[in-house]
């Protein structure tokens, strides 16, 4: 089981007049088979938090620890834009992040491509695919390393509504099946309520303002009364925190 421990995390960019506080004194524990959504207005440090957790950025202060059964956990990262190597085929993009190129690895990559319905697109270059298909390749890439924790930064925000909805379902399905931890950034409260059992609300200045548990059964239908109530509850929190204006 994976575990994330964040202690007194502080992150600043720039110096002097250009100084920006991206995260301020964040303390947080996530463990087990959770689906945690991080919501908040743009610029509140959501991407920065994920970048620190995945080792792209280093904290200014404080510590982060991601472990899985006592050893350092392997993270998978799905970015807001697919971030594929345009000069490599879809299959080679998946192989790029693997530790080896053995037959077993290749089969695993193919399996995850099939899972996002792109089993026959392995020989294509990313430029030959639509935006939605590229994003699915990005998702397959993150899954293909079979990470202990899956980080996703607004993965569906560039997609059309129908594709996004289908992918949300697929994601929920995979989370349910693999029992992996997912940390999911979004600025869409409806999406967060539909997918997660825990919602973290961040405010401008990178402060963690609220930690909401949502204990409703899956799959959740946005039209369902209880889901609508939960969503209204989160939106009310937003109002209280005066986040809607931003």
């Amino acid at each position: 089981m994976a575990e994330i421990r964040i202690k007194n995390l502080h992150k600043e960019f720039g110096v002097g007049d250009d100084k920006v506080v991206a995260l301020e004194d964040v303390n947080l524990d996530i463990s087990g088979h959770s689906f945690v959504s991080i919501v908040g207005p743009s610029g509140c440090g959501k991407s920065t938090l994920l970048n620190i957790l995945t080792g792209i950025e280093t904290p200014t202060n404080g510590t982060v620890e991601i472990t899985s059964d006592g050893h350092v956990a392997a993270p998978g990262y799905v970015f807001q834009a697919a971030r594929l190597l345009p000069w490599r085929t879809v299959t080679d993009n998946l192989l790029f992040v693997q530790e080896d190129r053995s037959e077993g690895t290749k089969e695993r990559c193919q399996r995850y491509l099939e899972m996002v319905q792109l089993g026959d697109k392995g020989d294509k270059f990313p430029g030959e695919l639509s935006g939605g298909m590229q994003q699915r390749v990005g998702i397959a890439r993150a899954f293909s390393i079979e990470p202990d924790v899956l980080f996703m930064d607004e993965p569906f925000s560039h997609l059309d509504a129908i594709t996004a909805r289908a992918l949300r379902r697929e994601l929920h399905h995979m989370w349910d099946e693999t029992k992996k931890m997912v940390v999911f950034v979004t600025h869409d409260v409806g999406e967060a309520v539909e997918l997660s059992n825990r919602i973290l609300v961040f405010a401008k200045g990178g402060r963690l303002e609220d930690d909401i548990q949502i204990d409703l059964p899956f799959p959740r239908d946005p039209a369902d009364d209880e889901v609508a109530v939960a969503k209204a509850h989160v939106l009310r929190k937003f109002e209280e925190l005066d986040l809607l204006a931003s």
């Binding site: 939605g132 697929e170 409806g190 986040l243």
Partner: peptide
């Protein structure tokens, strides 16, 4: 990508349901 290459957005999975809820709940 060549100019001639056709980029097709493929339908993903089944998606017969009405959609619209999510769009109204955007922030930031």
């Amino acid at each position: 990508p060549q100019l001639q290459t056709e980029v097709v957005e493929e339908a993903f999975g089944e998606h017969h349901e009405h959609y619209g809820e999510e769009e109204t709940a955007r922030h930031g």
